[in-house]
């Protein structure tokens, strides 16, 4: 049995593209999603800045709206804006924008539920010690929720890998693109299964890495 011509170079290029899309959008997502998750928690009624509950409901509504659109539709919907911003609607760089936006909404929610696990008493103990809101966020909420937040980042990254593969279907490049155009449309089974295998291995590695780091911080 012979491999499709250019099998290895194609896989390499596609893997690097996916790696690029996923890592850049994962970094941006964490940067945006984590603060949003914190905002969702602290502005809940009864939480440390519960008086800002209006912020909470608007933010919640916006995030829900974003999350209710399937990624592939969302990507097409904002294509014109993306073109305006990066000059092109296709290719890995263009895809980073919708990927980041969609994953940020996801991340905000999973980070929120991790942060909600911090017992209220611990927060009150910090308040009664005279800590400010920022000090409570930095020195109580984030460190106490650290294992959960690491898990949140982990599943967000895995989610991003999935979405980036979907993005490939409409010209995003990367492994998804390769799998669909060569593997599926041209029926090159070796390419198809190679992309599947690579994606599976990545997801496994990232998940177990995430678990291990999270466990390290559980005391």
């Amino acid at each position: 049995m012979t491999l499709t011509p250019n099998f290895w170079p194609m896989l390499q290029t596609a893997s690097l593209e996916t790696l690029y899309m996923v890592s850049v959008s994962a970094a941006l997502t964490t940067l945006l999603g984590l603060p949003l998750g914190v905002a969702l928690v602290v502005t809940r009624p009864g939480h440390i800045v519960g008086r800002l509950w209006r912020v909470n409901s608007s933010l919640g509504a916006a995030i829900n709206a974003l999350r209710s659109v399937p990624f592939i539709i969302f990507m097409v919907a904002i294509l014109d804006w993306v073109r305006l911003l990066v000059g092109t609607g296709i290719g890995p760089t263009a895809v980073i924008i919708p990927l980041t936006l969609a994953a940020t909404a996801f991340m905000a929610r999973v980070a929120e539920s991790a942060l909600l696990e911090v017992p209220h008493g611990v927060i009150e103990a910090a308040q009664s010690a005279g800590a400010t809101t920022w000090q409570i966020i930095w020195h109580v909420l984030l460190p106490e929720a650290r294992p959960g937040l690491i898990q949140a980042v982990t599943i967000t990254v895995i989610n991003l890998i999935g979405c980036s593969a979907m993005a490939g279907a409409i010209g995003g490049g990367g492994l998804g693109d390769l799998g669909i155009r060569y593997g599926y449309q041209r029926h090159l089974l070796d390419v198809l299964w190679a992309t599947v295998l690579i994606l599976m291995v990545w997801v496994q590695v990232i998940q177990s890495l995430g678990d291990r780091v999270a466990d390290h911080f559980r005391s």
């Binding site: 611990v122 020195h139 109580v140 460190p143 106490e144 911080f217």
Partner: peptide, 27 residues
């Protein structure tokens, strides 16, 4: 005013010493 609680409410991510230093740091 210091306060102590029924369920202690210590920071699980900090050691005993780290918990005691918390109010000193925030002050």
């Amino acid at each position: 005013m210091g306060m102590i609680f029924q369920h202690f409410d210590l920071l699980s991510s900090r050691t005993a010493a780290g918990n005691v230093s918390f109010p000193l740091e925030t002050a």
